[in-house]
Amino acid sequence: MSLAKDIKHFKQIHCEEGCLSIYLRTSLSSADQQKGEWKIRLKNGLKKLEEYIEASDNQPELKAFKKVKKEAENHILELSTQLPNSIVFIGSSNGDFHLRKLQVPVENDFRWERHPVVDQLESLEEKYPLSGIVMIKKTDVHSVETSLGEVVEEKHYSWDIEQEDWKEYIGARPQAETGAALHREQYSERFDANQQRWYKKIAKKIEKEAKNRHWETIHVVGSPDQTSEFAKQLTVSDVLIVKKNLAKMKSHEIVKEVNESAI
């Protein structure tokens, strides 16, 4: 389910006994986190909520909280060996539980209210919308669809010299065909002479993809001359150019680098 659909669903949840919302940063990138600091934060955050409910002397609500708290601990601790950057847990005493792993940071927050707290999710949706990253490398174009710092889908386009058109591959990057590098070298001058026309062809494919998939932004990545030439062929307004060579990076590394460049 997309984040937008999740948020819409969470806003429809209402529970008189209470809803638990947990935003927990679990990234192992810092030394203190590697020592399990996130477990301490989880324990302390839930303990403070429980103490607050106990002070209100509302036994049905306390019972409901303990039930949801147990579910939250079970769901989150199951991820101990494969932690994402952040975890969001939404749960209510009526048995509606949701856990979402995120590759972007959140602010640690623990809330017990009648409705799920979705303010951070809404901020993340705005900061990391569904977008396309398009890497240009002369006769090869690699597009990565991304949302919330994650890879949603990727496609590769290679210029077919014989057909004089772009050949599309979905998924993993295709292996170079035997002799393909030699052919491309032989036709290098021809490509340079027709670059504008050929980039216009692939630009139309990318724009169609962006429209059908509802990308909010297109990030064009590559050398200054190739990114500038390709961007000229795009008719959409939300285009950002990243003048970096990321061709040797894995897709999730590319997404991370582009997001950091955009901040």
Rank of each mutant, 00 (worst) to 15 (best):
K11M: 13
Q12P: 00
Q12V: 10
Q12D: 08
Q12L: 15
I13N: 01
I13C: 08
I13Q: 14
I13T: 06
I13G: 00
H14C: 07
C15Q: 15
C15Y: 14
E16L: 08
E16G: 10
E16F: 05
E17D: 15
G18L: 14
G18E: 04
G18D: 03
G18Q: 10
C19S: 09
C19F: 09
C19T: 14
L20Y: 11
L20C: 07
L20M: 10
L20P: 02
L20I: 11
L20T: 04
S21F: 09
S21T: 15
S21K: 03
S21A: 09
S21H: 07
S21R: 05
I22A: 02
I22R: 03
I22M: 07
Y23T: 04
Y23V: 12
Y23C: 10
L24C: 09
R25K: 14
R25L: 14
R25Y: 14
R25E: 11
T26E: 09
T26L: 04
T26K: 02
T26Q: 06
S27R: 03
S27D: 13
S27C: 06
L28E: 11
L28Y: 02
L28Q: 15
L28I: 11
S29F: 10
S29H: 10
S29M: 08
S30H: 04
S30L: 03
S30R: 02
A31Q: 13
A31W: 11
D32P: 00
D32F: 00
Q33K: 05
Q33C: 00
Q33E: 14
Q33P: 01
Q33D: 07
Q34R: 15
Q34E: 11
Q34I: 07
K35Y: 08
K35M: 13
G36A: 09
G36N: 06
G36F: 12
G36R: 00
G36V: 11
G36M: 10
G36L: 12
E37F: 01
E37A: 11
E37L: 13
E37W: 02
W38F: 14
W38E: 02
W38D: 02
W38N: 06
W38T: 02
K39C: 03
K39L: 13
K39N: 09
K39W: 04
I40F: 03
I40E: 10
R41V: 03
R41Y: 07
R41A: 08
L42T: 05
L42A: 03
L42G: 02
K43I: 00
N44T: 11
N44P: 06
N44E: 14
G45P: 06
G45V: 08
G45Q: 00
G45N: 03
L46T: 07
L46Y: 03
L46Q: 07
L46N: 03
K47L: 12
K47C: 01
K47Q: 12
K47H: 09
K47T: 09
K48H: 07
K48L: 07
K48C: 00
L49S: 04
L49C: 02
L49A: 01
E50F: 00
E51A: 01
E51R: 02
E51W: 00
